[in-house]
Design a binder for these strands. Structure first.
Ligand code: FES
Ligand code: FES
Lengths: 156, 156
DNA sequence: CGTATTACCCAGTAATTCAGTCAACTATTG
DNA sequence: CAATAGTTGACTGAATTACTGGGTAATACG
C-alpha cells in the first residue's frame, strides 16, 4: 500500500491551491513557502498533477497553477492516484497472482480494503476540506507569515 | 502509512494457522511450504505475534504454533499492528506537529482515514476469513500439494 | 541418555523506495 | 531581450523492507 509523504504533500498543495484560488494563479514558490515543501519536489508533483488533468499551468510572470476543475469536482482519491500510481492494498496489483500465479489466501481481503479506502477518499472533495473549520484556522495561521489571505477567514 | 508485505504475510500466516488449527500445533515450516513465505522471515513475524499475545508456541517435535484466542476473537487490525508498529495514515504519528510543530493543513483528513481503515480491519475476524467461500477454494488448492487438509472443504 | 525436531534469537545484507536536489531547457510576459 | 515560471530527467543519501544464516534452547521419543 502506498500512502507516503508524496501523496500527502500533493493533497496539501492542492488544498493550498484551492484556498488561494480566487487570487489568480498560485506559483509553486508561494506554496513551497506556506507549506514548507521543497520547491523542486513540488515541481515533480505538479508535473504529474498536470498530466492527470487536475491542474493547469500559466507560464510567465504572474503565472502559476490553477485548478482545472471546480474544487467540489476534485476529490482526494484522484490526487493521491495522480502522484502515487495507485492506492492499492494488494500485493499483486489487483491481478491475483502473488502466490505462484494464483491468488493468495488473503487477496480478497486486500481488495476489499482497497475499495474501502478508495471509497472514503473519493467521497471527500477539495471543497469539503476548504470548508472545514480547522482548515480555516490553520490556513489563517499560516497566512500570518508573509502572505495576505484577505477576507477568506474572517470569522470565529 | 505502512501496509507492506510484512503485514500481509502476517495475516496470511495467521489465516493458515486458523484453517489448520484443529490438526494440533502448526509448525512454521508447514506454513512456509503452503504459503511460500521464507521460514526465517516467518520466525521474525511470529516472534512479534507471540510477544503481542496472538499466538502461543509449543516446542519440540510435533510442536508449532497455536492461536492463543479463538479465531473469532482475533481481528486483522491486531495482526497488522502486531508486526507493523501501527497502521497510521498521518505523517506526524497522530501528534499533529508535522508542519513546524503545528498541524499541517491535511492533518485531520489523515486522522479520519486512519480511523476508517482501523475500523474496517478490526471488524474482520480470522473466523470471518476462514468462512469465506474463496478462502476455502484457495486453501483446498494449496492442500493438494503436500498437506492433507481432510474434511475441511468438502463441499461446493 | 541422545538425537531429531521445533521454536528462539541475533546479526547482517541485498534490493528497493522515498524524499529531496540539481541542472539544463522551454515558453510567456512585458 | 530580460525576467519569470513552468518542464524535464537524472541523480543521490538515507531509510526501510524482505530475506538469509548461524547458533542456542527446549522438548518428545526411542
Ligand atoms: S494480494 Fe492479490 S494475490 Fe495476493
Ligand atoms: S499529518 Fe499530522 S500534522 Fe501533518
Amino acid at each position: 500500500m502506498r500512502l507516503t509523504t508524496k501523496g500527502r504533500y500533493a493533497v496539501t498543495a492542492m488544498l493550498d491551491l484551492a484556498i488561494h484560488a480566487r487570487q489568480g494563479p498560485v506559483s509553486l514558490s508561494d506554496i513551497s513557502g506556506r507549506q514548507a515543501i521543497s520547491l523542486s519536489y513540488l515541481e515533480q508533483l505538479f508535473a504529474k498533477l498536470r498530466r492527470n488533468g487536475l491542474v493547469e499551468s500559466i507560464r510567465g510572470p504572474g503565472g502559476g497553477y490553477r485548478l482545472s476543475r471546480q474544487d467540489h469536482e476534485i476529490n482526494v482519491a484522484e490526487i493521491v492516484d495522480a502522484v502515487n500510481e495507485t492506492i492499492d492494498a494488494t500485493r499483486c496489483n489487483q491481478k491475483g497472482d502473488c502466490h505462484d500465479g494464483e491468488k493468495c489466501l488473503t487477496h480478497h481481503l486486500w481488495m476489499d480494503l482497497s475499495d474501502q479506502i478508495h471509497g472514503f477518499l473519493s467521497g471527500i472533495s477539495l471543497n469539503h476540506l476548504v470548508d472545514r473549520r480547522e482548515t480555516l484556522e490553520i490556513s489563517r495561521r499560516q497566512g500570518r507569515k508573509g502572505e495576505r489571505i484577505s477576507a477568506l477567514a474572517e470569522e470565529d
